[in-house]
Amino acid sequence: MDLLSSLSLEDLAASFSKLPVFPLFDVAYYIISILYLKYEPGAVELSKRSPVASWLCAMLYCFGSYILADVLLAESPIHYFSNNANILLASAVWYLMFFCPLNVFYKCVSFLPFKLVLVGMKEVVRVRKIAMGIHHAHHHYHHGWVIMVLIGWVKGSGVALMSNLEQLLRGIWKPETNEILHMSFPTKASLYGAILFTLQQANWLPISKAYLIFFFTLFMAACKIYMTATHSHGSPFAPIEACFCSILFGTASSDHDDPGDHHHHHDDHEMSHSAAKSKEELNEGTRKRKVKKAE
């Protein structure tokens, strides 16, 4: 810590942790979130066919984490919609993204150099939301570590966790795309970040909150900018996860047979048996008709 203090990093981290995110960083968050919504298949057609459904989807992309966290904490899920300035900003971004003449707004924000800046700014907001979620949960449950991790995780990746609900608003039902079953990098990073911030809140992590916000934001922004620039969908956690999961939970291919395999083999056997039986009955019916004609 002495080395960090001598480099004036402490002042930098403290100033960064107090940097206001409204309106500049929040607008960047809304732009990238709704940009990803526009990438979804059928999103543009939905905006023409049902603007209300499209707007609701955009609000879920922007404020889904707040809604889900409020539901888990038994608070009003529409509480955040009382922030008129945020709602108006997000609505303006949605309108420009889908209805701007000649798609000028979309072309500007999807221009890669500008998009990378917006992606980095979005991660600033994500880390702040994780930290605020931990603080909010700690206020209600002082010793509820699991609750603090859960709320911090939801604050950081609630939009992805509510993806199935958002798909229903667009008339799509794909339960196999459940984010918990197939976690993306932001969802995993939000979970790990929530664990770190919970340990820091419980004084188990010997680092100040300002330092944690600063360094974790740098990590998240660097990873997301690199992944966006290279169009990568991999995860930097993959090698570590593969190592620990193989030790703690075993490999995916176990020596023991999967009970589902026996079920499939049994079904295949029944299908083969039914097919043979049907063929036998068909041959028997043909033979009887021939005998009848001969008589």
Rank of each mutant, 00 (worst) to 15 (best):
K224L: 02
N84E: 14
H233L: 14
L248I: 09
F63I: 13
H263I: 14
F215P: 02
K107E: 01
L68V: 07
A92D: 06
E295R: 12
F215S: 14
S65D: 15
T286L: 10
L9H: 05
L150S: 08
A229C: 08
Y39T: 15
W145A: 11
M97F: 00
L165N: 00
S82G: 06
L196D: 04
I240L: 11
A28D: 02
V125A: 05
V93G: 00
I151K: 00
I240S: 09
L72M: 11
H266K: 07
S8F: 06
V125H: 05
A74F: 15
S253H: 13
L196I: 11
I151M: 05
I130C: 08
F22R: 11
C245A: 13
A69Q: 07
I134L: 06
E281A: 03
S6A: 08
A43Q: 10
L89I: 08
P23F: 02
K288E: 14
S278M: 13
I213K: 01
S91N: 09
L191D: 11
S5F: 03
K224W: 02
I130T: 10
M271A: 14
V291G: 02
I207Q: 05
E10P: 01
M132G: 08
P259T: 04
K129C: 04
L12C: 06
K174G: 01
A92L: 14
K293G: 06
T177C: 04
H182P: 00
W94N: 03
P259N: 01
A275M: 12
R49L: 10
A275H: 13
W55L: 15
C245V: 06
V52Y: 01
V52H: 04
T198V: 09
S253Q: 12
H143D: 13
I32Q: 03
G234D: 15
A74E: 15
A160F: 04
K129M: 12
